[in-house]
Design a protein around this nucleic acid. Structure first.
Lengths: 336, 336
DNA sequence: CCGTCCGATTCTAGCGCTGTAAATTCCGGA
DNA sequence: TCCGGAATTTACAGCGCTAGAATCGGACGG
């Protein structure tokens, strides 16, 4: 049996297509009687609107893309959930696009490959520079997520990375630690995210009259727990002497935990460890992780709001917003 | 500036729309000369096809939905990646739909709410029974993932759960353990997945002339590491006496690890622990987890193949396939 | 030199829905 | 009973693209 179309319902109910359309979309100016009559026809025929038709007609796809490197990074998975949920409230669905964190993947995203498929994009760049993003600038509305030094013309939402990094470092210093390392900066080409977190970490050290030593920065070759296990392991075996390790993210912290425990180092007694992102698992590692918890809800809400405004035609300058974060203290740092 | 349409390119190149369309789609019957001429016009105008138009015309959306409870469960996130990658090879994009693991969410998915938006659905049900899914049966092609007792009319791809559960249990028994518990069955209403894994676990025990005791089954109230921490913690505090714990999935295993370590129980010396899914993190917990590793690649490939066949009009009986798995032995179980 | 044939190109309908503008209906008031 | 204006419903023209039929044009054999 062929699909039921608006036309079929219209004939069955003996009204015009437009009226049926109005009923389906819950539009105003439909009398109660008419609504009932049409609804009956819809139910009898089992009509379901064809989204593609609607989309072509309205020019809106009802889809926004959420782009980042890799969904299996817990932070991004959790972000996806929140964004999807909030988008749904605005009648939007979210299409997840993974860029693999490669320049190529990010470029193809920005080179409006999604043109005509999604109405806008929420994009957390990994490697593309802000200027390049601005240059490739498409018709497609884009809102940037994260720490990219965003072009003036584009919207961006992030948390206060420098401040947060300072707070978390301050927290371990307040616990009496003095040899504080940093884990997880990229071994080749620092991302803006790492740069800012390291900046905050350094500020905190300097506030305490401690000199940041290059040897305390432990770079990893990839954003993963396994990368951190290798890097921290190698550093420890190389004689690294620390009493605290501030990690770039929870995954790095989880890897750090393992590298320490493999060597019999106790956390937090011997070395305190902190993470970043407050992914769900950070509460169930042993010991559980003290971590920076960004307000994902607010992040998603603001980013989506800015994006929807762009989609609705807003053409002003880029808006740069920050959302709050808090420090969640758990077992991996000593109680004060 | 308004968007460039096919018509604009056609005028610019002085040819018909259809010819441009042929060039864009790389269709046959286009002379080299014409191709070049049109391509030049396309480049000059910066034309990008509007997917919505194409989709309406072809009736194909180029989108398949991948539905499961929650992306932030690592197994699903990793599955998403693999499915997306493989789908891309078939020129399909993947739309992730979370059902929250609720009957309501799953019903709304099956009640062809996606009609007209996606061409088909890969669905891993959490709570819906196979008969109900079959009843709600829509026009939309669906392939089931996972252990659901699939209706005869529907395609389904899974791994051999009973066998795998038996193997992993056998592995700890071979290590000399005799009081083997199972962690992670749902406290209310066993899912088919849990049922099969428990069945395999029991078979292995029986093979060793051990009697499965109900007290060795530790139910959790939700699929999460935190749920396992609570459940296993409570069981241990209640005097649970085991020397091995086979967990329903890696998340449960991670929670189990913590519950044991909190109480000073050593893994694997005092209690061996196994997981299921081989999520990335299972290699970096401390100790790392022995776990069942499904062949995700094959799972995704087969499921997508079956789905695409359905989309292309295949109307035969349901195909039920299994893909392979292997046991990955790591630190959480003693070496033999 | 002409008729045939075949691949290259154009023509013409839609795909299913919505927005606009015009037509119709409905009411209270005169 | 009739009129004016507001509310409701209808007619119709696309949104951008593709498919199939129709048409064109040139190479080839006779």
């Amino acid at each position: 049996m062929a699909r039921v179309r608006l036309q079929d319902v219209a004939e069955r109910a003996g009204v015009s297509m437009k009226t049926v359309s109005n009923v389906v979309r819950d539009a105003p100016h439909v009398s109660e009687k008419m609504r009932e009559r049409v609804q009956r026809a819809i139910d009898e025929l089992g009509y379901r609107p064809n989204m593609m038709g609607r989309r072509l007609a309205t020019g809106r796809t009802g889809l926004v893309a959420l782009a980042f490197s890799d969904v299996s990074i817990p932070y991004f998975a959790e972000l996806s959930r929140v964004v999807s949920r909030i988008a749904l409230r605005h009648d939007y669905q979210v299409l997840i696009k993974e860029t693999e964190g490669t320049l190529e993947g990010e470029r193809s995203l920005v080179a409006n490959s999604e043109q005509g498929l999604v109405d806008g994009v929420l994009f957390q760049p990994s490697v593309m520079s802000s200027t390049e993003i601005a240059r490739h600038r498409t018709e497609l509305p884009i809102v940037l997520l994260g720490e990219t030094a965003a072009p003036l013309t584009m919207d961006r939402v992030m948390i206060e990375n420098v401040t947060a990094a300072r707070e978390v470092t301050e927290h371990v210093l307040a616990g009496g630690r003095r040899r504080v390392g940093f884990v997880g900066n990229e071994s080749s080409g620092l991302t803006e995210t790492s740069r800012q977190r390291i900046a905050g970490y350094q500020q905190a050290l300097e506030d305490h009259r401690l000199t940041p030593e290059p040897g305390l920065l432990i770079a990893t070759d990839e954003i993963s727990a396994a990368g951190a296990v290798r890097a921290v392991g190698a550093a420890l075996d190389g004689g690294l002497d620390v009493d605290a390790l501030v990690c770039r993210d929870d995954l790095a912290a989880i890897g750090t935990l393992r590298a320490l425990q493999e060597r019999g180092v106790r956390v937090p007694q011997d070395v305190a460890v902190t993470g970043w992102d407050d992914i769900r698992l950070s509460a169930v590692t042993f010991p559980s992780l003290t971590t920076v918890s960004p307000d994902l809800e607010a992040l998603a809400e603001r980013a989506l709001t800015l994006l929807l405004e762009r989609i609705d035609g807003y053409e002003g300058m880029g808006r740069h917003e920050t959302v709050s974060h808090r420090l969640v203290v758990r077992e991996s740092t000593p109680v004060l």
